[in-house]
């Protein structure tokens, strides 16, 4: 028993065990949960949040926070829909959305790294700014985005697997590789662990800060394109509150909010926990009011368990 505990701590699989327990519970409570079609459904539902949460993981690992991802998602989604309507090639539209997200994220990074503004404040400001820009551009109305090739991005399949799930998997694997196998990752962890020590070690911390907010923005842009494609329209209020789900996924996955410890595999598990809960509570016909409350309680319990573990360790 003691060995098991050590093992769980060493490999940080606490969140994974939680996810498995929730899945087992839901399987016992309803025979509609553990079916291939429903599981694919869950995977597709979590893909948007996972993309945002992966970007958020980079940011949080440096000790920052990005509240603007929901607004960046809406902004690049709307501009992508506009470009599509104007006749832009659908593949180029996706790249266009990503570049817009990257630019928006870079603006965050510049304010934080070179302007010296606290990440919470800086991204609170740009969150409002990008939402406002979206409302101005859309004039508060949805923009239709109906085009067959483009619709495949959010609604299509590769074999039996929905396209967004493939994209999500690719992004998670790439992010995992960057964070664990590349110099960028080491530096991101070092900055969050101890920024002064990172500077003393010759790391250009400002550059890497701009980079992580850029990555977060880029993934928000990509998520914006996917959501627009899936809904076949860009909503001016799309993505409202998504930043909080993304932060919740990161924290549930065991990444420290003060930076320096964690990773994207945990974040994926965190996003799956949120997705499975949403899906399971729907299947069980729990009213949406109760769903919110249950989700909040799960997050609190998970973080509490994590804190107690940390305090003991």
């Amino acid at each position: 028993m003691k060995n098991l505990k050590i093992w769980i701590q060493r490999y940080k699989i606490g969140p994974l065990i939680g996810l498995i327990l929730i899945c087992i519970g839901l399987t016992l409570m309803s025979d509609r949960f553990f079916t291939p079609s429903n599981l694919m459904n869950v995977a597709r539902q979590v893909s948007i949040n996972t993309l945002l949460a992966v970007g958020m993981t980079f940011v949080i690992l440096t000790g920052g926070i990005d509240l603007s991802v929901g607004s960046i998602l809406a902004f690049s989604g709307a501009l992508a829909a506009g470009a599509l309507a104007a006749g832009m090639n659908p593949f180029v539209v996706v790249i266009y959305a990503c570049v817009l997200g990257l630019l928006a994220g870079t603006i965050n990074g510049l304010f934080i790294a070179y302007g010296g503004i606290a990440p919470f404040i800086a991204t609170l400001g740009t969150m409002t700014l990008f939402r406002g820009a979206t409302l101005i551009y859309t004039e508060g109305r949805p923009i239709r985005a109906v085009e067959e090739t483009f619709s495949n991005l959010g609604g299509g399949y590769v074999g039996p697997i929905p396209t967004p799930v493939i994209i999500m998997a690719a992004v998670v694997i790439l992010a995992w590789f960057i964070l664990t196998r590349m110099t960028i990752g080491r530096r991101v962890f070092a900055i969050g662990g101890n920024e002064d020590a990172a500077i003393f070690s010759g790391i250009k911390t400002n550059l890497y800060k701009v980079l992580v907010y850029g990555i977060s923005g880029l993934l928000a842009g990509l998520a914006g394109a996917i959501l627009t494609s899936r809904l076949m329209s860009a909503q001016p209020t799309a993505g409202t509150g998504y930043e909080l789900d993304a932060i919740a996924a990161v924290v549930l996955g065991g990444t420290s909010l003060s930076g320096g410890a964690g990773g994207v595999l945990g974040t994926l598990v965190g996003a799956l926990i949120i997705g499975v809960l949403d899906n399971g509570l729907n299947i069980l016909n729990v009213s949406s009011f109760y769903q919110q409350a249950v989700k909040g309680i799960v997050i609190l319990i998970a973080v509490l368990l994590d804190r107690r573990k940390a305090a003991r360790g």
Partner: peptide, 9 residues
């Protein structure tokens, strides 16, 4: 502790 090492690393 503050400048030499990333203690949690």
């Amino acid at each position: 502790k503050d400048e030499g090492l990333v203690l949690m690393g």
